[in-house]
Design a protein around this nucleic acid. Structure first.
Lengths: 129, 129
DNA sequence: CCTTGACCTTCCAGTAACTGGAATGCCTAT
DNA sequence: ATAGGCATTCCAGTTACTGGAAGGTCAAGG
């Protein structure tokens, strides 16, 4: 399978797949014409990566998870640790965003949004009463 | 005031302030020795920027907001539009993160996290039953 | 007068994870 | 032969900084 086929199959852009090869996440073979040749194991890895990325894992986490995935003698504790840390980071981000959201929602609600210049949003940012 | 003073005052790292000058958000004067010299209006702007950034506005949004802030004949509708769009983006992000969070939390909960290799997290990522 | 330390300056490179585009090569069909 | 639709590499750009190197300035102390 060429890169276009695998891209369709995995849902990943060809560019991204090339990038993943660049950083050593997959190592497709090469055909005589220099085209990348993807096999089932590559497809498997790419699907794995796509799902892990969709859960927000960083590339480095993905690298770690992929290694664990391929290691038959792994300890699930290691996987769980990576996932738990990631979960905590997600929670942090959600909290941050929610606090922004709250402030912002108040400001937006209090702004008339008309042709006049008075604006509680700018007043708040400029910290003037 | 030199950059160190203004950094302390605004809570922004000196590096960041230099960067803001680079991209034209502030334009402090220069003393004879080449040091940046910050006046009250600069301080004001930097505080404004710090607060806007803390609410998650992009630099370009900040540029727009700053321009509106300084424009006495602005229409608050324009401010509100920027803020509302940003609010929507925040909501999107929160939703994304929460959906990740949910999936991930289930996976983490179902993983024993012990010395054995069996791992529902990896099974899910590898999409094997 | 010289040195020390705390400032300040500029410039270059790196971060994360791609994405876009240019220049070029290959393959298949008409 | 040529047109299209693939593929290749390489370079640059994105966001908002951050770190570090190499060097200039200033005030205080010996």
């Amino acid at each position: 399978m060429n890169i276009g086929d695998i891209a369709r199959l995995t849902g990943l852009p060809a560019k991204t797949i090339r990038y993943y090869e660049d950083i050593g996440l997959v190592t497709p073979q090469r055909s005589a014409n220099g085209y990348r040749h993807f096999r089932e194991t590559d497809q498997h890895k790419l699907l794995f990566l796509g799902r892990a990325r969709a859960l927000g894992f960083t590339i480095e986490d993905c690298r770690t998870l992929l290694a664990l995935y391929e290691d038959q003698s792994r300890e699930s504790a290691n996987v769980k640790r990576v996932a738990t840390e990631h979960l905590n980071k997600i929670d942090e981000k959600i909290n941050q965003l929610q606090s922004m959201r709250e402030t912002l929602a108040h400001l937006v609600a209090s702004c008339a949004g008309d042709h006049r210049p008075d604006c509680p949003i700018l007043n708040d940012l400029g910290q003037e009463p």
